[in-house]
Amino acid sequence: SEEKKKAKERLERLGASSELARELLDRANGNAEKAERLLRKLL
């Protein structure tokens, strides 16, 4: 979806690899905010 694509791009801008961004979104069930929080914990 367009929303998921935007979320993935945002995670990548924050420093996630394409693969990591995809994994985070999967774990967050597509929830962009939750995926971002997970990423911030990792960085």
Results as ranks from 00 to 15, higher is better:
S1Y: 13
S1W: 12
S1P: 12
S1M: 13
S1A: 13
S1R: 12
E2F: 09
E2I: 13
E2R: 11
E2P: 10
E2L: 13
E2Q: 12
E2H: 11
E2M: 13
E2D: 14
E3Q: 11
E3L: 09
E3D: 12
E3P: 09
E3F: 04
E3R: 11
E3N: 11
E3S: 12
K4L: 15
K4H: 15
K4S: 14
K4D: 14
K4C: 12
K4P: 09
K4Y: 15
K5D: 13
K5H: 10
K5T: 12
K5Y: 10
K5I: 12
K5F: 08
K5G: 10
K5E: 13
K5R: 14
K6G: 10
K6I: 12
K6L: 12
K6F: 06
K6M: 11
K6R: 13
A7S: 08
A7K: 08
A7V: 09
A7N: 08
K8M: 15
K8Y: 15
K8E: 13
E9P: 03
E9T: 09
E9S: 09
E9N: 08
E9V: 08
E9Y: 00
E9G: 07
E9M: 04
E9I: 09
R10Y: 10
R10W: 12
R10M: 10
R10G: 06
R10P: 03
L11T: 00
L11Q: 00
L11I: 04
L11G: 00
E12V: 13
E12D: 02
E12S: 04
E12H: 06
E12R: 08
E12L: 08
R13F: 12
R13M: 13
R13N: 09
R13V: 07
R13Y: 10
R13D: 07
R13L: 12
R13W: 11
L14H: 04
L14D: 01
L14W: 04
L14Q: 06
L14S: 03
L14I: 07
L14V: 04
L14T: 01
L14C: 06
G15W: 01
G15P: 01
G15N: 01
G15V: 04
G15S: 03
G15F: 04
G15M: 04
G15H: 01
G15D: 01
A16D: 02
A16N: 02
A16L: 06
A16G: 03
A16K: 02
A16S: 03
A16M: 03
S17N: 07
S17F: 04
S17Q: 03
S17D: 07
S18Q: 10
S18M: 07
S18A: 14
S18K: 11
S18N: 07
E19Y: 01
E19T: 06
E19L: 06
L20M: 09
L20S: 02
L20F: 05
L20E: 05
L20Y: 01
L20V: 07
A21D: 01
A21N: 00
A21G: 01
A21Q: 02
A21H: 01
R22T: 14
R22F: 09
R22L: 15
E23Q: 12
E23N: 08
E23I: 14
E23A: 10
L24P: 00
L24M: 06
L24D: 00
L24Q: 01
L24K: 00
L24T: 01
L25D: 01
L25F: 03
L25M: 08
L25Y: 03
L25C: 07
D26V: 07
D26A: 11
D26Y: 06
R27F: 11
R27N: 07
R27T: 07
R27S: 08
R27V: 10
R27G: 05
R27L: 14
R27K: 13
R27H: 08
R27E: 09
R27M: 14
A28Y: 12
A28M: 10
A28S: 10
A28Q: 02
A28K: 01
A28F: 15
A28T: 14
A28H: 04
N29Y: 08
N29E: 12
N29Q: 11
N29S: 09
N29I: 04
N29A: 09
G30C: 06
G30Q: 07
G30L: 03
G30K: 02
G30D: 06
G30F: 04
N31W: 05
N31R: 03
N31A: 04
N31K: 04
A32S: 09
A32P: 10
A32F: 15
A32L: 15
A32I: 15
A32K: 04
A32H: 06
A32V: 15
A32E: 10
E33N: 09
E33L: 09
E33Y: 06
E33F: 06
E33A: 13
K34E: 15
K34H: 14
K34I: 15
K34V: 15
K34W: 14
K34M: 15
K34G: 09
K34D: 15
K34S: 10
K34Q: 15
K34N: 11
K34P: 01
A35C: 02
A35V: 02
A35P: 00
A35G: 01
A35R: 00
A35S: 02
A35D: 02
E36A: 05
E36M: 07
E36P: 00
E36T: 04
E36Y: 02
E36V: 08
E36W: 01
R37P: 00
R37E: 15
R37F: 05
R37D: 15
R37V: 07
R37Y: 06
R37T: 09
R37Q: 15
L38A: 12
L38I: 13
L38Y: 04
L38G: 04
L38N: 07
L38V: 07
L38M: 14
L38S: 06
L39N: 00
L39A: 02
L39I: 01
L39R: 00
R40M: 08
R40N: 11
R40H: 13
R40S: 11
R40W: 06
R40T: 10
R40A: 11
R40D: 15
R40E: 15
R40V: 13
K41G: 12
K41H: 14
K41P: 04
K41I: 14
K41M: 13
L42Y: 10
L42I: 14
L43R: 07
L43C: 13
L43K: 05
L43Y: 05
